[in-house]
Amino acid sequence: MNEARETIRFILNGRAMAIDAPADRRVVDLLREDLGLTGTKEGCGTGECGACTILVDNESRLSCLMLVAQLEGARVTTVEGLELLPVGRAIQRAFVEEGAVQCGFCTPGMELAALALLREEPQPTRERIREGLSGNLCRCTGYVKIVDAVERAATDIGGGEQE
């Protein structure tokens, strides 16, 4: 049986990609298995937990629910790409300094959701931070430290987008 494949062109963490893959392959599988970007986690596989969160054209998306064909022409950021952005480094630093990382399974999705939020709203209220992180589940921290970390990152970047 021949599997229909196509070349998908997109930008991944600032790097141009041309991937020959089945159009119906899930993005989470492409990232983890084909590209070795294992920071993107698969938790539930049904879009309920947020562990597979990535940014596609600066919007939070669940990679377990996306097909590779949906990446055509898009700009994709995974947790591995956060270190390339000053605001991403500020988010990562704040998560560590505020104790928002325990087991770490939810951390990549939380950090990417935080990046999407801070790009949209550089100085969010605590309520807005909770809304921005909704859909990302954490079983360890109780969310207070995660909200603290996002609030600190917003303060650290001074409310301005720093690419």
Rank of each mutant, 00 (worst) to 15 (best):
E98V: 02
A114V: 07
F105T: 00
L55M: 10
A100C: 09
R152F: 01
E33V: 04
L137H: 05
L117E: 03
I11D: 11
V27Q: 11
D20P: 01
R130T: 09
S63Y: 01
E83H: 07
L82I: 02
D57G: 03
N136Y: 02
A74P: 01
T78A: 05
C52L: 03
I157N: 07
P22Y: 04
N2V: 06
G81H: 08
F95W: 13
A23W: 04
G14K: 07
E59K: 15
C140S: 11
T78L: 05
N58L: 05
R61L: 02
A94Y: 07
G132L: 09
G132V: 06
S60I: 14
R15S: 08
A149T: 03
L112K: 11
V28W: 04
L133A: 09
V27F: 04
R61E: 03
V79S: 08
V79N: 13
L35M: 12
P86I: 10
G142Q: 13
G14V: 04
C103W: 15
A69Y: 13
E151C: 08
G104C: 09
S60Y: 13
I19C: 04
R25E: 01
G142R: 15
E42D: 07
L67D: 09
L84P: 00
L82S: 01
I129N: 02
V150Y: 07
C140L: 11
P124N: 12
L71R: 06
L62A: 02
E131F: 03
R9Y: 01
D20Q: 04
A74L: 06
E127W: 05
T77K: 06
N58T: 04
C106I: 01
C44S: 08
V76I: 12
T155Q: 15
L112T: 05
D34H: 13
C138N: 07
R61Y: 04
G158P: 00
L37E: 02
G81V: 06
T125F: 11
L133T: 04
I157Y: 12
T155V: 10
R9C: 04
L30V: 15
V150H: 09
A113T: 10
G159L: 14
I19G: 00
I54G: 08
E111C: 13
P22V: 05
R61S: 01
R152I: 00
L71S: 04
V79F: 10
R93C: 02
L117F: 02
M1S: 11
S63C: 05
G104E: 08
K41N: 03
I54D: 03
E98S: 14
